[in-house]
Structures are given as structure tokens and as C-alpha cells.
Design a protein around this nucleic acid. Structure first.
Lengths: 172, 172
DNA sequence: TATTGTTATACTCTATAACTATA
DNA sequence: TATAGTTATAGAGTATAACAATA
């Protein structure tokens, strides 16, 4: 548990992080927006997967993922295959062209970051990466919901909108 | 200087940070978008200032700042005053209403973060804040431009677009 | 009837460029 | 002529909702 002041600072720093993110986006190939790059990176790291899984990894709604994927498919960076186990699903796979693009992206990221973080030690970067990963994980989980019943939630109590990012709940 | 692999990871974590940022945005009052909140926070922290200074602090183009500010002025959260030293400038100041809103924002941020980061020590949060601040600073400075002449740049050599974020260079 | 994925629409943030008013 | 700030326009990311195909 941290002090109130710390949380304020963290919120501020997170909000102000846009500049760094944009700075990094600027080094991407001009036909590869950050969203597409994220798709490629996830497929490279975790291998072939379905749309729903990808949306979960990227922590954005599936409709968003669908658009990024469609874009990458148009460019020939990834391919879509029917899932033999379920006709509704599509399996996504990096193409050779996609792998080549990823190498280029990695090069540019490394160049940009090594310029920007020239004064940082390897340990500094490592610590930041680790903390960011933990932060991300903390926000990936469904809202913790300030405990009340230590046991599971009362069966059927869905008062709190458990923001699921893979699918927008339709209120039909 | 960190390893190539580290930079890849950092780039990935930064890209994936959107979810955490959105998560935090969601707790803001519904009529206060993140951009407006950033304006209020900066004014609270650094006091009365001009548009140009604010744009620099937020690290976004002044046109963007202008819109956020206009929105906050409409809501009565900040006020604009003529600068006695320069008739072109406008001094921005938090209003009482703005201060009250900031308290509310701070409350909600602290609540959300303490829920999410319940397992974190105060030191963990502190280290993350510190590293994020350093990261931000690294991207605030104009591009370092992989050294060539150790002395200053040749007078008149403006080949590299020194991405200034306060003002978009018009190519008239 | 429920689920996977797509598409249409709208909102927010952002940069670019043109415009004004002061200097 | 140059600078501070505004506004109009366009591009990217995202969520919501409605829809198609399959289970």
C-alpha cells in the first residue's frame, strides 16, 4: 500500500506518457501504425492464435483488433486461416513479410531508445520493463472490487460491470 | 546502454500501456476527459502560466492545448487573464471550482490505484514513478541526434527536423 | 440461444495549416 | 516580419451496437 501522494504522481506520469509513446510511434514505417505493430509483435511472441485471444493480449475490444488485423492482412503481414476446430474462428499467422517488417521495427525501436536512453544502465531499463509489466498485469485483471465477502461473489450478483475488454457487452 | 532485447521489451510494454491509461481515465468524472484533467493537474502543480508554457509541460502541440483549455474554461475550472507583459499572451489560472474538481480526481485516482496495486509496496510505486519521470524527460528533449561534431551544430544546419511540440512548423 | 468475428458510427486525442492580434 | 494563440480539418485509436455465420 502506497501513500496517496504516490498515487497522484503515478497517475500524472501515466497521463504524461503519451509523448514517449508518440515518440516511439514516429519511428515506425509510415504504413505501419502502432496498432498494426502491436498485432505483429503479439503474434511473433505468442505464435498463431485466434482473434479473441489476440484481443485479450492486446487488451482492447475485439472490434478494434479486427480492424488492425484486417489492415495487416491487406498489407500481407499476416494471414487468416479457418480454425479446423471451430468454423467461427480464424487463426492468425505471421507471414514471411510480416517477420521481415518486425525485424525492421525492432531495429528502429532499438535505435530510438538507445539514443533517448543513452544514460540508462541495462538494469534501469530492466527494472522499468518489469514494473511496467506488473502495472499492465494489474490492470488486465477484472476490477478487484474492494472486498466484502471473502468467499466468492454471491452467485448471480453482477452489479459491477466487469469491464471485459475482449467483448463489449451488448444490452439486448 | 542496455541490450537490444531490453529495448524491444520496453517498446512492447509502452505500447501495451494503453489499457492502464484507459483504466485510469474511466474513473474520471464523465464531463472531464483526460486532456482536461492534465491541464488542471499542471496548473495545480506549477501555478499560473501561459498557454505556450502549458503546451510545453504537456508535451503536445499548442493547438491541442488550446482546445483542452477552452473546454476547461467553458466548464469554469480555469480562467484566462491577459498578460500585462505581453498583450498576445494569456495567463491561465485554476478557479476554486477547478481546485475542487482536482480533489475529486485525486480521490478517484488514489482509490483506483490502491485497488489495482494492492500488492505493491510504497517503494515499488515510488520506483515506477521515478523511472517514468526519467523516461518522460528523455523524450522531452529534442532528438539527441547521434553525435557527429562534438561541438555545437554547424550554424545554419537545420537538416534534422527538431520536433518541437509547442508549435507545428508551418512551411510557408 | 450463445459465441466468434465483422462492420458502422461516434468520441477523444493528436498534428498540420491557415488565420488573428499583438510585438 | 515574427510570435502567441485560435480554429478548421484530417488521421489514428478506441468503444458501442448491430449484424453474419457457426455452434
Amino acid at each position: 500500500m502506497a501513500a496517496r501522494r504516490r498515487y497522484d504522481e503515478l497517475a500524472r506520469q501515466l497521463g504524461a506518457l503519451g509523448a514517449a509513446r508518440r515518440g516511439l510511434s514516429r519511428v515506425l514505417p509510415s504504413d505501419c501504425p502502432p496498432g498494426a505493430a502491436a498485432v505483429l509483435t503479439a503474434l511473433d511472441r505468442y505464435g498463431e492464435m485466434r482473434m479473441s485471444k489476440l484481443a485479450e493480449l492486446l487488451a482492447v475490444d475485439m472490434s478494434v483488433t479486427s480492424r488492425h488485423v484486417a489492415y495487416a492482412v491487406e498489407r500481407g503481414w499476416i494471414s487468416r486461416h479457418p480454425d479446423p476446430l471451430d468454423g467461427r474462428c480464424r487463426l492468425l499467422r505471421l507471414t514471411g513479410s510480416g517477420v521481415k517488417l518486425l525485424v525492421q521495427i525492432s531495429d528502429r525501436h532499438a535505435t530510438a531508445l538507445s539514443e533517448r536512453l543513452s544514460g540508462w544502465s541495462d538494469e534501469d531499463v530492466g527494472r522499468l520493463v518489469e514494473l511496467l509489466a506488473r502495472l499492465r498485469a494489474a490492470f488486465d485483471e477484472p476490477r478487484p472490487r474492494a472486498a466484502a465477502r471473502p468467499a466468492g461473489p454471491a452467485p448471480g450478483s453482477r452489479t459491477t460491470r466487469t469491464t471485459r475488454t475482449t467483448r463489449t457487452p451488448s444490452r439486448t
